[in-house]
Nucleic acid binder design. Sequence first.
DNA 1: CATATTCTATATTATTTTAGTAGGTATTTA
DNA 2: TAAATACCTACTAAAATAATATAGAATATG
Lengths: 137, 137
Amino acid sequence: MKLSTRSRYGTRMVLDMAKHYNEGPIQIGEIAQRVNVSVKYLEQLIIPLKKADYVKSVRGPKGGHMLKKAPNETTIGEIVNVLEGGINLSECVENPDVCDKSKDCLARGIWEGATKAMYDKLNSMTLSEMIECDKRV
Amino acid sequence: MKLSTRSRYGTRMVLDMAKHYNEGPIQIGEIAQRVNVSVKYLEQLIIPLKKADYVKSVRGPKGGHMLKKAPNETTIGEIVNVLEGGINLSECVENPDVCDKSKDCLARGIWEGATKAMYDKLNSMTLSEMIECDKRV
DNA sequence: CATATTCTATATTATTTTAGTAGGTATTTA
DNA sequence: TAAATACCTACTAAAATAATATAGAATATG
């Protein structure tokens, strides 16, 4: 149950934006270079982040992208949730109707519990906490 | 980061075996019917479970498969681990060398923490506890 | 010991998801 | 108006997943 590169690369990108918060729009080419992912791929990842209101963009020369909310108001879990399209180990956790046995499924309860544990962990750290944590090293 | 059907179907199968522990070998056709997965697919899933010493099999008429260890000696996490080929959200958690930035990667720490939370949860319940839990309902 | 039954092994195919690329369009600044 | 930048749509390639098919090997039982 690996995270897709969407989440992993997207998280790198968002952390990069967080590092440069309050420096105005950052061009995607710059970010791509720093996080070592192609511009074209990052462009795709920005779309859902904009829709979910985590990123805003400015067009034209001197344009670019930036976080819409302060880094201490967003957790890693929120970002992963957007990029991964939901955080859960099995479809039935979110939508019990996909299986007619969901109601008394032995396994479903476990997937639900493990999903929650993971989710809580991912939501326990904000972007700014991660960056601060990094500076101390 | 969904579990594959391997883990989900395989878990159903193992739980079925656990329910019939001490009833001698259970034929895979029976199990397939009860858990609603094709015989052929389950046959594939049994292979790694045998290699990892969780299942033993008997050939010939009246043959079948059964758990090698008692249901209270095996956790769901162990089964998922075998079927999924390791439990971790990112390759770098298990094998830091896949990325030359692992050592001071902001994201890696988070993947590691969330992986552990999930892992602990999955290992917190044995097969027999799950079945007991079911009976009470 | 013959045979039916069951697991075992290998190969193949189809489907879906993931990852990545390409090229053109819209907007804005200077 | 020209250049820089984000935005949009479509496409392709590769990998992983899911599932099926066929033939082989072991063994209990009559």
